[in-house]
């Protein structure tokens, strides 16, 4: 089925492989959403997943931290590894996996709690902080990393839902960072935001890459080009092409990729 996938293997082989998907098939009930997808996620890089609506980007992203487990009808086969360990192995603790592979969603979804409590949520449930001061420090560093601290430092006890959309999204990123994950998955993190908030988050993603491996789903070609190093193009549940962002955007091998990035497939 995926005989025609052309991978620019040489270009990414020098990068440490943080996660890897092999022959990933996903179906919702009778409907198959992904067909034999092979993707390699390089450490400390931003990998962008692009493709037309309904092609399975979110589905694949959700496989990477097993969020698909929460959907009853969803069946995943194939292998996905994190640091060369199969995350679908029976011995894997899903909760722990999700702590290592955190997720930020399309619509900002702060909890109905104070800003502080939102960020402290992860450290609290995972028991990461040894003392109150420890916890406070974690919250502050996470907020700083998410570039939100200076804006909210005087209102830590106000509800997180009272922030602007862009601030809420950065709060959600801070919340994910606070758990000290290795990988951060982002599903269209900017689609609900205005251009200025989007620019802030893009800068943030670029900074976060130093410490974290990032996988981002986006509908914006420009965004993929701006923030990512590697890009995977999905079409109708297949991985059509995967390579460095430069290569995908300047010299796509597959005709469908070419059509998509030039705007001919919606």
């Amino acid at each position: 089925m995926n005989t025609n996938i052309k991978q620019a293997e040489i270009d990414i082989s020098d990068q440490y492989e943080k996660m890897r998907g092999e022959k990933v098939n996903v179906s919702y009930g009778d409907k198959q959403a992904l067909f034999d997808v092979d993707v390699s996620i390089a450490a400390n890089k931003v990998t962008a997943l692009i493709g037309p609506s309904g092609c399975g980007k979110s589905t694949f992203l959700r496989c990477l931290n097993r969020m698909n487990d929460t959907i009853d009808i969803c069946k995943v086969t194939g292998t996905i590894t994190l640091d060369n360990e199969d995350i679908y192995a029976p011995s894997v603790d899903v909760v722990e996996l999700r702590a290592r592979v955190g997720m930020v969603f399309q619509k900002p979804n702060p909890f109905p709690k104070s800003i502080f409590e939102n960020v402290a949520y992860g450290p609290r449930i995972h028991g990461l902080a040894n003392s109150k001061a420890d916890l406070e420090e974690m919250v502050v560093t996470s907020l700083q990393k998410a570039g939100l601290f200076s804006e909210v430092k005087d209102r830590m006890n106000e509800p997180g839902t009272g922030l602007s959309g862009g601030q809420q999204q950065r709060l959600c990123i801070a919340r994910a960072i606070a758990v000290q994950p290795d990988v951060i998955l982002m599903d269209e993190p900017c689609s609900a935001l205005d251009p200025i908030a989007t620019a802030t988050i893009e800068t943030l993603i670029d900074e976060l890459r130093e410490k974290y491996t990032i996988v981002i789903v986006t509908h914006s070609m420009q965004q993929a080009a701006r923030v990512s190093q590697n890009t995977a193009f999905f079409h109708l549940g297949e991985l059509v092409e995967f390579g460095t962002t430069d290569q995908i955007f300047t010299a796509p091998i597959d005709q469908r990729t070419q059509n998509y990035i030039t705007g001919r497939i919606g």
Partner: peptide, 15 residues
């Protein structure tokens, strides 16, 4: 309660 709340919590490793 919006499903996004649930996802947000499960997505960072809460049971």
């Amino acid at each position: 309660v919006p499903g996004a709340m649930r996802d947000g919590s499960l997505g960072i490793g809460a049971t």
